[in-house]
Design a binder for these strands. Sequence first.
DNA 1: CACGGCATGTAACAGGTTACATGATTAT
DNA 2: ATAATCATGTAACCTGTTACATGCCGTG
Lengths: 193, 193
Amino acid sequence: MSLRSVILVALADEDRSGYEITKDFETVLGYFWSASHQQVYRELKKMDEEGLVACRVEPQGSKPDRKLYSITDRGREDLLAWLQAPPAHPPVRSPLLVKVYGGMISGPEPLEAHIDTFYRESEAALNGFKAIEEEHYPEPVEEMEDWKKLAYLTLRFGMLRRQADARWASEAREILRSIMAPDREKSPKKNKP
Amino acid sequence: MSLRSVILVALADEDRSGYEITKDFETVLGYFWSASHQQVYRELKKMDEEGLVACRVEPQGSKPDRKLYSITDRGREDLLAWLQAPPAHPPVRSPLLVKVYGGMISGPEPLEAHIDTFYRESEAALNGFKAIEEEHYPEPVEEMEDWKKLAYLTLRFGMLRRQADARWASEAREILRSIMAPDREKSPKKNKP
DNA sequence: CACGGCATGTAACAGGTTACATGATTAT
DNA sequence: ATAATCATGTAACCTGTTACATGCCGTG
């Protein structure tokens, strides 16, 4: 039920079209949720049927018509209840770590490549976040408006995660080097002793 | 296609039953993947049909029969190809951060509770990992066998992540306190200015 | 004899991905 | 012209969750 709630959050302040909400998932909402336009349209339709949102068609002269959705009282109630309920913990699912764990089967070479890319991506994402921080949050936290503090916290989460990821990747690179080191006797590959 | 591959990794060293693989997801595999027994059984059935695994029924005297699965050559080929391909990046989906972002709607009280729980859970998980480290990986990394280095890396990932989570939670708590502080004029709630 | 662990599944549903499809407007 | 962006959707499929279901064994 999370997608519904994210959409309701997006609609809480201003009416938006499915297209705009999709764009939000590529920007602000993207720090903590992702959804494709197909998902958004499908969900909005269901939510309309269930009375959580209302829909009106807005003709806009030259451009194609758009369907503007607004949150209803029922929608607001549902959202409030969801926000107050303790959050679910999405289960861990990391393809990268599966590949690490299976490293004895693939051999260390592909692993080194994966981890290297992961390191670079983590660093790049971190730098991206830092740039956003400088541009949009230059003032000290205490001086931010309340809503801005909350948005900042979601950015901050991404930064700390990516930092941890980059740190792990460099550790992993070191350890991998010791596996790949050629000056060792070759023993038969076995995953468990 | 990741679930298939994780199952193949689990079968790479020794034949296992669906039940045993399910248990693996609660232990070793649990650091980087999760799946329910329903998923495991369903997937094994499909993989059998597609010739990635072979199945034989093992009667074991008193206890109920079990179906032992083993990886086939086709399975090994598929797994190797998958391990070598660059890993997919699962999209971010964090219910907690959605609730943070929607904090102006719910008010800070429930948020404080969510973040507090998150902090405690992160710390607890971290301590759990540290205990496992002491018990199962007491020797210096350089002295570990290759396969053990890889397993250690998956543990290490969990540790660094949880550490980052805990750090974020304490930052968040501080910032939240400044929102909740009662010695401020009350302004009308608005998510965006 | 009740309960937890072993061992296996089916069915329905919810959520997410991929592919396909349409048509207008605006910028190069 | 043609490509990008705006704006909307359908259909099929895959993956994950929840609920239901069965039956044996060993321990207290």
